[in-house]
């Protein structure tokens, strides 16, 4: 049977991975290819790259970095950030991406999902969503989680799958950065209504959080960034721990 997946996420600005703020309070950066190499050797099942660059030049540096990674790392690569048109799909797929993640671009124009799915296949289109509770309801946020769209996030997820999204990334703004576990309740709301794989994001702080996630049966994969970047959790140890606890992993 298919294993659950562990996916490190790399935010790239101007061709460098932004790891976040380190223990000395300094913004830490790394080389995309070096970090990708490290995660590949650690047993990551997939890599997600988000382009958080705003400038045109930065975008070029991003695709250069992507190409470099895809020339020596041979596991599935998902790429997101600034995907607004089919040309953007083409641009990253041509540099070795396997799946394209859409977020704000799909909010602006939901037909982007079906056009992407029709041209490249459902498996190629990942719908990424930033979700937060507002007055007891799950709201979809745009612009990297800064703007409340007022859209019902659960309905948005269901519609997205109907439009052809082959996978969902559910990022809970409520649990993001708290490091106290994934948002099981939010994930359950979505997982129970869709038939495509769900990737949980936001809240992982320790390996037990992944065990809780997978035992709850609310996600196919767990995604995290800083805990892997700052080596608070080693993917190799995490996968062994999960395997020992009867969650099948590729080890």
């Amino acid at each position: 049977m298919i294993t659950h997946r562990i996916i490190p996420c790399l935010d790239v600005r101007n061709g460098r991975v932004v790891k976040g703020v380190n223990f000395e309070g300094i913004q830490d950066v790394a080389s995309p290819v070096e970090l990708a190499r490290f995660y590949n050797e650690s047993g990551a099942d997939e890599l997600v790259f988000y382009d958080i660059t705003a400038s045109f030049e930065g975008r070029g540096l991003f695709t250069d970095a992507l190409k470099e990674v895809a020339s020596e790392i041979f596991i599935p690569l998902t790429v997101g950030g600034g995907i607004n048109t089919l040309d953007d799909f083409e641009r990253v797929l041509g540099c070795g991406a396997d799946k394209v993640s859409v977020n704000s671009g799909a909010i602006k124009d939901p037909t982007l999902i079906e056009r992407g799915a029709k041209k490249y296949g459902d498996q190629c289109v990942v719908l990424s969503m930033d979700i937060k509770r507002v007055d007891g309801k799950f709201h979809l946020f745009s612009k990297g989680g800064r703007v409340d769209t007022g859209i019902d996030a659960i309905q948005w997820a269901v519609d997205g799958v109907n439009r052809g999204a082959g996978e969902l990334v559910v990022n809970s703004i409520d649990t993001d950065g708290v490091k106290n576990g994934f948002d099981i309740e939010m994930l359950h709301e979505i997982q129970s209504r869709v038939s495509v794989p769900v990737i949980a994001s936001g809240g992982a702080g320790k390996k037990e959080d992944f065990l809780e996630l997978f035992n709850a049966g609310v996600a196919d994969a767990g995604l995290a960034a800083s805990i892997f970047h700052f080596k608070e959790v080693y993917i190799k140890d995490l996968k062994k721990y999960l395997n020992d606890n009867n969650i099948e992993m590729r080890v």
Partner: peptide
Amino acid sequence: KIPHMGWNKLNLKRADDPIFKYIEQGDYMY
């Protein structure tokens, strides 16, 4: 779920085939 997407284990039926020279029973493929 469909598609069958992710890492799954190989069960070699003819492990002595030369294509499996470097592959072991139970190796995962995508």
